[in-house]
């Protein structure tokens, strides 16, 4: 596979990562005012993971996400303005304001949903991947899950099933070093989550989650393999989160300066910018322009989200169950 991206793709990747970052930074600020209902878990810091994977997917491929799902949504093409309205609980939201941060789903984009059930995505992806296999349409399913979720029976069962049925599924373990407050060193019985792949008879690889290109290359190979009928892959993305487990988390369990050091030395956007501008393929001004556009778009989405109406009481019992 040629892993060199053309200008257009590089700019697309940058815009995607910047959009996720800006979205999360903005939700972080706004949540502190107390106006946003519910609970939010922010994805800032992990942008290269969702982006590096989803750059290989089309609208017909499916992804299953987690409670930390905003990044996956944006990378899969869900409209950020709709997402912002959703988080604010407004009827213009992706799920008419009734889902909130942890349940944003957009089936039209192949986004099966953020998920309040830790480890809930594995079985869903086995389902879409089985459907893809039966249809023979060469689409794939990607299950994003955390280091905490990697210990859930659902994930382990899903990896087993995916191998048994040779499904076009990709399991992306986003190991951000914490499940709420617990380090995988205490809870995961092997050094790497990727080590578990061998037990299921699938390849398991580790990539640096701050390096977009590392994720992009590994995901590209895994997606290609799945589309060709080669079966599932486990990719462990070693990464970190910039904010607490949820907004409001005091993070007493983290070393002082841990996040600042990551922001200064490893940040995916910083690395990406340095990389693509080094040889003059893309100018800093072009990236600055994207930054400004994204910022304006997020600003606008917040203004609209605040102004939009909440769903009325008559909406209480609609959209609760989906009839098939």
């Amino acid at each position: 596979m040629n892993t060199e991206l053309n200008r257009e793709s590089l700019l697309k990747a940058y815009r995607m990562m910047r959009t996720i970052r800006e979205f999360e930074e903005r939700v972080h600020t706004d949540f502190a005012t107390g106006e946003i209902p519910g609970f939010v878990h922010l994805y800032a810091g992990e942008e290269a993971s969702a982006t590096g994977v989803c750059m290989h997917l089309s609208g017909n491929d499916y992804i299953a996400s987690t409670h930390r799902g905003h990044g996956h949504c944006i990378a899969k093409g869900v409209d950020p303005a709709g997402m912002m309205a959703e988080i604010w609980g407004k009827e213009t939201g992706t799920c008419k304001g009734k889902g909130g941060s942890m349940h944003i789903a957009d089936l039209s984009k192949g986004m099966l949903g953020a998920n309040g059930i830790v480890g809930g995505g594995g079985p869903l992806i086995c389902g879409t991947a089985l459907a893809a296999k039966l249809r023979g349409d060469k689409t794939v399913g990607v299950c994003f899950f955390g280091d905490g979720a990697s210990n859930q029976g659902t994930i382990l069962e899903a990896m087993n099933l995916a191998t048994v049925w040779n499904l076009p599924a990709i399991f992306v373990a986003e190991n951000n070093g914490y499940a709420e407050t617990t380090s995988p060193n205490y809870s995961v019985a092997c050094e790497n989550i990727a080590d578990r792949a061998a037990a299921f008879g699938m390849p398991g690889v580790i990539v640096d989650g701050f390096d977009f290109f590392a994720v992009y290359e590994a995901a590209g190979e895994a997606v290609k393999r799945a589309r060709e009928g080669g079966g599932p892959t486990l990719i462990e993305v070693k990464v970190s989160r910039y904010y607490g487990h949820f907004e409001g988390d005091q993070q007493k369990y983290r070393a002082e300066g841990e996040v600042q050091k990551l922001r200064n030395e490893k940040d995916c956007l910083m690395q990406f910018r340095r990389h693509v501008t080094a040889d003059g393929d893309i100018s800093a001004a072009e990236l600055d322009a994207i930054d400004a556009e994204v910022l304006a778009m997020i600003d606008d989405s917040v203004v609209r989200a605040k102004a939009d109406p909440k769903p009325g009481p008559e909406e209480l019992l609609t959209d609760v169950y989906v009839s098939y």
């Binding site: 092997c190 061998a198 398991g204 590994a218 393999r225």
Partner: peptide, 20 residues
Amino acid sequence: NPASGRDIRRLTAKASVFTA
């Protein structure tokens, strides 16, 4: 080294996996 043998060659080639 507990991390040796986990790179992308597990995917692009049939490289072996040594367990801990």
